[in-house]
Measured scan of single mutants.
Amino acid sequence: WKITIYDQENFQGKRMEFTSSCPNVSERSFDNVRSLKVESGAWIGYEHTSFCGQQFILERGEYPRWDAWSGSNAYHIERLMSFRPICSA
């Protein structure tokens, strides 16, 4: 599993790669995730830290803005603060 997060939209700004769970992006000096690329595996992104709040399934691909992973939710969530890989047995 591999995911790359960015602190600006369209894959700009600070970037960081992960191959395992991140319970709080702010502990990695990110205020928020504004864009991301899922390089391999599937991940679950969460609205809040500690894997809480609205969940987003993140499959392999590029997500240049928050609405790319938020989709058409009843209330739009511009925040992604934690994530972890989906492990299959």
Rank of each mutant, 00 (worst) to 15 (best):
K2M: 08
I3C: 05
T4R: 04
I5A: 06
I5D: 01
Y6H: 04
D7R: 03
D7A: 10
D7F: 03
Q8K: 10
Q8D: 09
E9F: 05
N10F: 12
F11E: 01
Q12C: 10
Q12E: 12
G13D: 04
G13Y: 00
K14C: 06
R15K: 13
R15Y: 14
M16Y: 06
M16L: 12
E17Q: 12
E17I: 10
T19K: 09
T19Q: 08
T19M: 06
S20M: 08
S20N: 12
S20P: 01
S21V: 05
S21K: 06
S21D: 13
S21G: 10
C22I: 10
P23V: 08
P23K: 10
P23A: 11
S26K: 10
S26M: 10
E27A: 10
E27V: 06
R28N: 09
R28V: 10
S29P: 03
D31R: 09
N32E: 10
N32K: 10
V33Y: 02
V33A: 09
R34E: 04
S35T: 01
S35H: 01
S35C: 00
S35G: 00
S35D: 01
K37N: 05
V38L: 02
V38I: 06
S40N: 04
G41W: 02
G41S: 03
A42P: 12
G45Y: 03
Y46Q: 00
E47C: 04
E47I: 04
E47P: 06
E47N: 06
H48F: 11
T49Q: 14
S50D: 14
F51R: 11
F51Q: 03
F51L: 03
C52D: 10
C52N: 15
G53S: 01
G53K: 01
G53H: 01
Q55W: 09
F56N: 05
F56R: 09
F56D: 04
F56Y: 09
I57K: 11
I57R: 14
E59F: 04
E59W: 06
E59K: 15
E59V: 12
G61F: 02
G61W: 03
Y63R: 00
P64S: 09
R65A: 11
R65K: 11
W66C: 14
D67E: 14
D67P: 07
W69K: 07
W69E: 06
G71R: 14
S72T: 14
N73Y: 11
N73L: 08
N73D: 14
N73K: 15
N73R: 13
A74K: 14
A74I: 12
Y75V: 15
H76V: 13
H76F: 12
H76M: 12
I77M: 14
I77F: 11
E78L: 10
E78G: 13
R79G: 10
R79E: 13
R79P: 07
R79D: 05
L80H: 01
L80F: 08
L80G: 02
M81C: 08
S82W: 02
F83M: 05
R84P: 00
R84L: 05
I86R: 12
I86A: 12
C87G: 12
S88L: 07
S88R: 13
A89S: 15
A89G: 15
